[in-house]
Design a binder for these strands. Sequence first.
DNA 1: ATGAAAGCGCTAACAG
DNA 2: CTGTTAGCGCTTTCAT
Lengths: 346, 346
Amino acid sequence: MPHTPNSGRRATIHDVARAAGVAASTVSRAFSHPDRLSPATRQHVVETAARLSYRPNPVAQALPGGRTRTLALLVPDITNPFFFGLIRGAERRAADAGYTLVLADTGESASMESTHLDRLAGTVDGFVLASSRLEAARLRVIVESCPAIAVNTVVDGAPCVVIDHDQAMRQAAEHLASLGHSRLAYLAGPAASWSDRSRWRALAAAARRLGLSATRLGPFPPTVVGGAAAADAALIASANDGVTGLVAYNDLLAIGALRRLADRDIRVPDQLSVVGCDDIFGADFCQPPLTTLAADIEQAGRAAVGLLLAEIDAPAPADSDDPPAPERVVLPCSLQVRESTGPAPR
Amino acid sequence: MPHTPNSGRRATIHDVARAAGVAASTVSRAFSHPDRLSPATRQHVVETAARLSYRPNPVAQALPGGRTRTLALLVPDITNPFFFGLIRGAERRAADAGYTLVLADTGESASMESTHLDRLAGTVDGFVLASSRLEAARLRVIVESCPAIAVNTVVDGAPCVVIDHDQAMRQAAEHLASLGHSRLAYLAGPAASWSDRSRWRALAAAARRLGLSATRLGPFPPTVVGGAAAADAALIASANDGVTGLVAYNDLLAIGALRRLADRDIRVPDQLSVVGCDDIFGADFCQPPLTTLAADIEQAGRAAVGLLLAEIDAPAPADSDDPPAPERVVLPCSLQVRESTGPAPR
DNA sequence: ATGAAAGCGCTAACAG
DNA sequence: CTGTTAGCGCTTTCAT
């Protein structure tokens, strides 16, 4: 006994069609192409649908067109407050466009990132890869084979959104230089991270221009506990090489270092100045409040989803005839001065 | 020209079937019911599939069975660090079971929560509703009409996971009483929140048993900025009624209050003691470090998804004949003593 | 402007 | 064991 209506299940397009005395395709059009229907029938269908509280089945809609209206956001560590804003911005932008956002935590590992990519490939229309731990070559392949936008990673020839580390690190270096610091150390984060390489390069360049020395310590896990080891390493560098200014890969590391320094009775900023990166939740109320590099990361999330939607809707660039310059969104980032930096000790 | 193979598109089950010289259903079985196939053909099919790098299309798989293997997690505020652990736990548990997790931010609003619920209803197999802002009646209807598990909200007759506020608040009250505090104030959070009502009720009861007074201030937005107003209200209560001990709805509020009190040169804990709730990121390094009520929220996320999966796989309780006692997971919660509490001023 | 019919890719009886 | 045959709910030509 097929087609038993009203049997508790959700109304389908056929139930509506029967109730309204029209064809299923007409019901379909009433929703997806309202203009191709006479106002009369359209209204009739819509009313009938409402009466049966009909809701199109998204899965069935996705099958013919191959579009699920779902996007995936991959982050290395959901627990890092840095990603909150990113997640929220991406989610909002996606929701505004009628898309659903799937969130995946890759646990700072390239292999877990690959696994998620594979698992979700058939389910989502595109990816936002935040701070990817994938190597550049692999990333390029992915970005070429499916709609994907990288955040905080530059991918040649593909749109992406990045934070302007050069600008930011220059500000940090100038700030420290103006306070009389001449020997800097960078507390490095994950080697696989583009941000880490980019920040270090930018800091080193800025330091050189200002005639400061800069050495690289680490890498350390980009977490609060990683900060303890980083602080100890910094203390050695301070004793041996006269380092007085620290710039950390991120705020988690900086906050962890601050705590370790306090535990070891090192006064910040009197003996050592420290600059963080990201301006995460907590950076303004740790002890002392952290001087850090701040960007509007929520906007990064919005921008990434925006680029992704554009790529999805764009007619795939069949010919290399008209290579539309891949958009690269560069977000400004600036120094937020608080109390973890001060005049260099003499 | 239908069925053109190898034309760039992903291989389908039919491509594999043709290449392997078997029926499509055999290919299907090779993956979903390997035991119903002769080892020989199974291996042959699997190899052919691998050669064509065939991957079953999850959308197509979902259509016949109506199962998408996707779950949704709704939270009032992604930005609240309290939810990090919840999100991560839920995501992990879901991934372990081969499910995908969709995250939605409801912006602390019941209507946005409803909207998301509607939008996702056809797409996911079930919901985890964290700290729902929906009213009890509406929540009950939802929980009855589709697989859904509430976290931090009790729903009569349905499984849910909650934190043991009674135990926690008793510990907080005893701690404060032992330090000589006799007048307490509760800094309330959102009125629509079950947690808020539950925490206040538990605190009031515990205070009564110990012979302390407890008054309720607020409600305040459960955010750091909300904490400023809360602190001011507390100051009035302190001056007028001799309140010396504060218990906040959550750590965000408590941290905000701490900052406001510092700005107004009120010494914590010398003049006022404050207890938070949740033990979020930052509670251990704010100034002074916050005494707070801590639960393993990541486990709450895992438990919620676990219950949800059980409900999804369970044969719907058609008859009320055998009403399986709905499981209620109650997570222990205990006081984490730090430096924001101390002896009552005399 | 509307209806009929052919799938989208996969699963699940039902035969053999 | 394996092939055949229907769909799952919706979209989309192609006719009319």
